[in-house]
């Protein structure tokens, strides 16, 4: 049942994706029609997007639910996410149209919920600032609307 569920508040929407690892979590979305690599795109010390060509350049990702197109780049994300989480400078969750094995390994290792392959383009279904609940085990994302 797309766009709602029994008992859900009227303003809540549900989007289904591929079930994945991680515990349910609620937070604020940070969305871009752009890709993601922890190595290429981030200043992990300052907690901001640092690649000048990235749409989110200069924005803080700490404690946000990142909603992006695809995992790109190399293997470093597989350990960098855990290092970021250890310093409490990590995103809250990761949602992609397409993740990759590195992102899956890295998120699982870091204990960060991750999901991908949604029934619609997740970067267009969600807007920055909206509150989301990510339920990886159930394969759903609840969009509660503006914070």
């Amino acid at each position: 049942m797309r766009g709602g569920r029994k008992g859900a508040p009227l303003s809540e929407r549900i989007i289904r994706g591929h079930p994945a690892s991680g515990t349910p979590i609620t937070g604020s979305a940070l969305v871009a029609q752009d890709n993601f690599s922890a190595r290429y795109d981030l200043d992990r010390i300052k907690g901001v997007f640092s690649r000048p060509s990235h749409i989110l350049h200069g924005q803080s990702y700490v404690g946000r639910i990142l909603v992006l197109e695809a995992a790109k780049g190399g293997v470093a994300t597989a350990w960098m996410l855990r290092e970021m989480a250890a310093r409490e400078m990590a995103p809250l969750a990761l949602l992609f149209n397409f993740a990759n094995p590195i992102m899956a390994q890295g998120a699982a290792f870091a204990g960060i919920p991750v999901m991908d392959r949604f029934e619609e383009d997740i970067t267009r279904a969600v807007r920055s600032g909206e509150r989301l609940t990510v339920e990886p085990g159930n394969g759903i994302v609840r969009i509660h609307g503006p914070a």
């Binding site: 190399g74 293997v75 470093a76 994300t77 597989a78 350990w79 990759n100 094995p101 590195i102 390994q105 890295g106 290792f109």
Partner: peptide, 8 residues
């Protein structure tokens, strides 16, 4: 091979 991260 797949891309394997360091831990994997």
């Amino acid at each position: 091979s797949n891309f394997e991260g360091g831990p994997a």
